[in-house]
Amino acid sequence: MLTYIIRRILYAIPIVIGVNLLTALLFFYVNTPDDMARKILGEKNVTPAAIENWKRDHGYSLPSFINGKERGAARLTQTIFFQKSVPLLWLDFGRSDRNNIDIGSEIRSRMWASLAISLPTFTLGVFLEIVFAMALAYFRGTYLDLWGVVLGVVMMSVSALFYIIGGQYLLGKELKLFPISGYDHGIYSMKFLVLPVVIGVLSSVGVGIRFYRTVFLEETGKDYIRTARAKGLSEGAVLFKHALKNAMIPILTNVVVSIPFLFYGSLLMETFFAIPGLGSFTIDAIQSQDFAIVRSMVYLGSLLYIAGLILTDISYTLVDPRVRFE
């Protein structure tokens, strides 16, 4: 297993470098360092000299990929790509272009707020989705199944924004049960988490129920389930002991790959509920043309994606003995 993981990590290196290269290429062709400087320095009193100085002080006056003025290794090292991207390999994200803050420190502090929302939303959501999907599979063909499916379709058709604004209006403004928005630290954060978690679960549960119901129905139509029923096992035992175990592969594919991205948070939730997470960090950086943050978050995203895929592969072996690392 260890050899497999090491091999997968080695495969990931060119992917990560490629992602970095593409980000740099896209950013510099669409958006030159001059554009960044102009945007960051503001609207008033921005002289060409100020733009040149900004580029020099933030390391953007170097050539992009090859420095013809240098000799030897410096031809490669004294370039924007090398200087900005190589420290990322050891997770040194550097400082933001916009306000010089330490990006690593910012990610570490924002990550916990994102997790505080996304982890319970995700766990509760997956739990409810599986439970309700199994219940619908149990009552398949009845009016409960019919109305459950209809409700699921309705819930997945409604925009997340509607859930957020409606939830804030109903539960926060009209019924006055929870704060409309905000966040606090430690135990004090609890009252701020209920509303976004409830809304997060409600907005995602429709899709999940429909998906898992299909998975369970597919499993319950297989021969081994018929055999189990023929043996006289109760429907509950058939579903929980046999169907659930065998439906784990599609469930894990869906669930495990999402886990690393819980750190990333949710843009909409965090913006509307004023939660200081990572959700809006990248979007804010794109809007303010802070390449340092964009680069760091894209890099982190690629790492998380690779981690998600490796975790999924490992989890397959845990639920299906037929899957082996090769």
Binding site: Q168, K176, I180, A274
Partner: peptide
């Protein structure tokens, strides 16, 4: 000073 990016929650909390 509380961060409120969206106008709707900001307005409702003022009314409350």
């Amino acid at each position: 000073f509380k961060l409120e990016k969206e106008a709707i929650p900001r307005w409702n909390k003022f009314l409350q």
